[in-house]
């Protein structure tokens, strides 16, 4: 009597179906099962990608279907790469990415380390800390615009209380020097809990016996932190950075609600700029080239990063 799963499946197959698939090789059966998924992937992922690549070499505009579509070669790519405004949006995105990741990693790890201690009210504090990430970005963007209001905003009054400056003397979202930081602050406030949760998972996965062994070897707390905690949490931390990096590269809603890309274009991130080109100016060919450039950039950076992450995990 056979007991393998395959045998049980074969026995359970109705005779009518069994007769129909008899004579088909395993490979053919496998293809029959995966074909719908592959067809779906081709239709909704691969085809649009290839279509976008083709469009990027044309002057096509989706809102002007009656205009002739012309092949213009690399002109869209040339225009994008030589456009100072696009480089400015790249710079704004890089600033936003770097500082949000920096603050979220530092604060997220610190919070996870604190929450990992056993103390009264630990669960309550964890719940309170993760609340911001449960809110909608549109809502967060809206209420932070009120918090940043120079005349009535709590943020300005808080700064005024701490520093003694007049709360109406500065505008977080209206000042060129402060606006890039205003979006960094809000994103950090909202997403640090996410990094904290991942770090917490990392911290709780470290077996106690490692610390016990270190204590037997009379390793100091400082040395335990650097030689046990940090290396063992690092893969988790890098994963959090990858998730947040990808999310923040395509950041849109929060910044649109907060600053609309202004003042001027100082907080106009690439995703906002791309959306304006594609769905407000309707320069479909141009924005396709723009999207391809961004895709290649993100794909390249993410590949390098994932390789580094795997190396850290294998260590």
């Amino acid at each position: 009597m056979s007991n393998t799963a395959m045998d049980r499946v074969a026995e359970a197959t109705p005779p009518k179906v069994a007769r129909r698939i008899r004579g088909l090789s395993d490979r053919v059966i496998a293809w029959i099962f995966v074909a719908p998924t592959i067809a779906l992937l081709l239709a909704i992922n691969i085809f649009p990608l290839l279509w976008t690549v083709w469009l990027s070499f044309t002057n096509y505009r989706a809102n002007r279907p009656n205009l002739p579509v012309q092949w213009i070669g690399l002109r869209n790519y040339e225009r994008i790469l030589s456009d100072a405004d696009i480089w400015a949006t790249m710079q704004a995105t890089a600033h936003f990415l770097f500082w949000t990741l920096f603050f979220q990693v530092v604060l997220g790890f610190a919070l996870a380390w604190l929450i990992n201690r056993k103390f009264k009210g630990n669960d309550l504090w964890t719940t309170i800390i993760v609340l911001p990430m449960m809110l909608s970005p549109a809502v967060v963007g809206n209420f932070w615009t009120f918090l940043y209001q120079p005349q009535i905003g709590l943020f300005n009054y808080g700064i005024a209380f701490l520093t003694g400056v007049d709360p109406t003397s500065f505008s977080m979202i209206g000042d060129v020097a402060l606006a890039p930081w205003s979006i960094v602050i809000v994103d950090t406030w909202m997403w640090t809990p996410f990094v904290m949760l991942i770090c917490l998972a990392g911290l709780r996965s470290i077996p106690d016996y490692i610390y016990e062994a270190a204590e037997c070897d009379r390793a100091s707390n400082w040395r335990q932190f650097w030689t046990i905690t940090v290396p063992m949490v690092l893969p988790f931390l890098m994963l959090a950075v990858l998730f947040r990096g990808i999310e923040n590269f395509k950041m849109f809603d929060l910044v649109v609600q907060l600053t609309g890309g202004g003042p001027g274009s100082i907080t106009e991130l690439t995703s906002i700029n791309l959306k304006r080109e594609a769905f407000e100016k309707w320069r479909t060919g141009y924005s396709s080239a723009y999207a391809i450039i961004l895709f290649v950039t993100v794909f390249g950076l993410a590949s390098i990063y994932v390789k580094a992450l795997n190396k850290v995990k294998d260590r």
Partner: peptide, 12 residues
Amino acid sequence: LYDCCTPPGSSD
């Protein structure tokens, strides 16, 4: 006009 005479925070 914007610089001299508008309320603080009226940048948008």
